[in-house]
Amino acid sequence: MTMTEQHHPNDLIIICRDVHKWYGHYHALRGINMQVHKGEVVVIFGPSGSGKSTFIRTINRLEEHQRGEIIVDGIRLTHDVRDIERIRMETGMVFQQFNLFPHLTVMDNITLAPIWVRGWSKAQAEEIGMQLLKRVGIPEQARKYPGQLSGGQQQRVAIARALAMQPKIMLFDEPTSALDPEMIKEVLDVMIELAESGMTMLVVTHEMGFARAVADTMYFFDQGQIVESGPPEQIFGDPKEARTKLFLSQILSH
């Protein structure tokens, strides 16, 4: 929202208005408003249970919102399955637990969706798959199975798999939280390269170094609401809300 003056208003790619979500009686999202421009890198952070993962999962309908509206790349999310599948084709997602398909090789993981959803030929999909594996730095692992790779390598395969669909938006749901410390950097390096290439990214993470380096806008979530948002300089340098200050002091102190 602070960035709007730098962008044309018509290059909005994600629009969320008053998004609410309940689990039974539990009110998980309480009126989220967010606008994301093409090429913008958004970092969402906050304490656990604050609804940040739930929120980015509503954008590709892994979670259903019950009130408000979400418009992704000009398509309004409704119960219409075709619309949902169209949005999912344009939206890549990277999960905390990687969620690679263990019964398929790395290459088959990457080419599955381009072949079966986009209808590409196997040769074409494998060519692009190999380019992506080079981009994430592990072309030599193409014929291995996910179980044979380290966590960092698996997460890079997961990024390559999401990119293979040539999405317009990439969603990252705590991509480094399940990794051993020495593997976090190799994944963050790939994400930084991706951010610099102009990809629109929504990243739920506690990696504040990453946020400082590449985020355009940061959103602090707490109790299902956006408490504060702004560019990283403002969030780190001059946070307005007491809750933001407290949370940042807790995660930056160690």
Partner: peptide, 25 residues
Amino acid sequence: RGQYEAARALGLNTWKMMLLIILPQ
């Protein structure tokens, strides 16, 4: 559940998800 979510997030419809991802495993 992550396997279903990953398949759905890639845009696979229910039948393709079942035939390619879930049933083989």
